[in-house]
Design a protein around this nucleic acid. Structure first.
Length: 436
DNA sequence: CATGCCGGGTT
DNA sequence: AACCCGGCATG
């Protein structure tokens, strides 16, 4: 992808730092903080100890939110759930949070729930906890490959999306670098992946963007087929790819780019758990307690559809759509009347929505709105229709198209990050990412 | 002058 | 077809 022999004149590609870090998910082996645990990954079902009512109580981890570093723990003795900061959780009994020294260095990766001779029901509880949390809580899908690297051709070094950020660690989606479809799971997974934990730090460093945007763990993710008249929604990228490939692309050869071709026919959709009152799962620990960076730009609607968001039909109210490849995407229609959001969602771009998703007034909204787009949404003049329509009526009879109000890739990313531009911009064509 | 992108050349 | 860029229109 990188320019071969002829670098763009202005292309300072040499200065770019390719984020090909292999440390896809550093699970933070640093197991010690000052007190309690620190930067440790706790697994559902894992036995931990917390202070409760002045005394130490043993419990089992339900979930570990890496974002807030909070652990929700179920205390069987008290039959209650508590939520503790990670520092206030420890793993050795009868040891109140050790003062300063390493309390317990946990090997984060080989973290086998110990079978201590406690009680039998403890084990049962643990098992139950694991099951429940696996079935209800936001699960993690491999952040890297599950997130179809937007805008970039997926394999170039723009893979700066080194991900590891915070997420609830209900780790059962093992991340393998290549999408190896665990098909059964893919299709029936009723648990949409949530928050792949895009690590925006990297980008922020690269982009100097203010950008505190980060998809919260309160957003479910699913993938919807964009094939005409097919609105299949699946929760795993593997599933949707397979769906597209098998049902729509047919057996058009598994070779070359047909592999990637599926990407063109699905889209990511999101659902805000905060807005959908219940997430279908009984456990209270489904949603994140706090969500400082609310991405909403539409008021919560009362009629949240309670049905399974993964129904076959059109997406529910709060599913928002995110095109992966706008360059090939359907004729874009601007989704304008979105109220300004206080916090940008992501520096990653979100291609435009098509008509049927942008039903006026519905709580649809775009997931990742870049700074430029935000600006656009607030300031843009009456948008012109379909600047890049697929069909020929691209009357070039007149002069060139008016210069759009929107910031284009060049402005948003700057020429230093030319590789982040959309293809069109890189080719000095009409920008396909920030359409006006 | 910076930017957006058309038109056309090159690979 | 993908890619690149000269050059012009525009703000």
């Amino acid at each position: 992808m990188l320019p071969k022999n002829r670098l763009g004149k202005r292309s300072p590609l040499g200065a770019l730092v390719c984020g090909t870090s292999t440390e896809g998910r550093v699970i933070s082996g640093i197991g010690a903080g000052t007190h309690g645990l620190h930067r440790v990954k706790l697994y559902p079902g894992q036995r931990v100890y917390v202070h409760c009512g002045g005394q130490e109580c043993g419990g089992v981890v339900e979930q570990h939110n890496h974002v807030d570093d909070e652990v929700s723990v179920f205390l069987p003795q008290l039959n209650t759930h508590v939520r503790r900061k990670l520092e206030d959780v420890w793993m050795t009994p009868a040891t109140p949070p050790p003062p300063t020294n390493t309390p317990y260095s946990v090997s984060s990766s080989i973290d086998v729930p110990k079978r201590s001779p406690e009680t039998v029901d403890m084990d049962e509880i643990m098992a139950a906890m694991v099951l429940t949390s696996l079935s209800c809580s936001p699960m993690i899908q491999s952040p890297i490959q599950e997130e179809p690297a937007p805008a970039l051709s997926g394999m170039d070094c723009g893979n700066s999306e080194v991900s590891d950020g915070g997420y609830w660690s209900c780790d059962h989606g093992n991340s393998s670098p290549t999408p190896s479809p665990s098909i059964a799971e893919a299709d029936r997974a009723l648990v949409p992946p949530v928050d792949e934990g895009l690590d925006m730090e990297m980008e922020q460093v690269l982009f100097d963007e203010p950008a505190p945007r980060r998809r919260k763990n309160s957003v479910k993710v699913a993938y919807r087929c964009l094939w005409p008249n097919c609105e299949k929604i699946l929760t795993s990228i593997v599933g949707i790819k397979r769906h597209v490939r098998t049902l729509h692309l047919g057996q058009n050869g598994e070779q070359d780019h047909s592999q990637r071709e599926e990407d063109f026919y699905y889209t990511e959709i999101y659902q805000d758990l905060e807005q959908t009152a219940t997430c279908g799962a009984p456990q209270a620990s489904c949603g994140s307690p706090s969500s400082p960076t609310q991405l909403t730009c539409s008021p919560p609607t009362p009629d949240t559809n309670q049905t399974s968001p993964l129904s076959q039909s059109a997406p529910g109210n709060f599913w928002q759509v995110h095109y992966e490849h706008s360059y090939q995407a359907l004729p874009p229609v601007r989704l304008t009347p979105c109220k300004p959001v206080s916090v940008p969602a992501s520096s990653r771009w979100t291609p435009p929505l098509t008509g049927h998703q942008s039903k006026q007034g519905t709580p649809f909204r775009r997931r990742s709105v870049s700074v430029g787009e935000q600006w656009l949404q607030n300031h843009s003049a009456p948008s012109r229709p379909h600047p890049a329509s697929v069909s020929p009526p691209r009357s070039h009879c007149t002069t060139r198209r008016l210069r759009g109000e929107a910031k284009k890739c060049r402005k948003v990313y700057g020429i230093e990050h030319r590789d982040q531009w959309c293809t069109a911009c890189r080719w000095k064509k009409a920008c396909q990412r920030f359409l006006d």
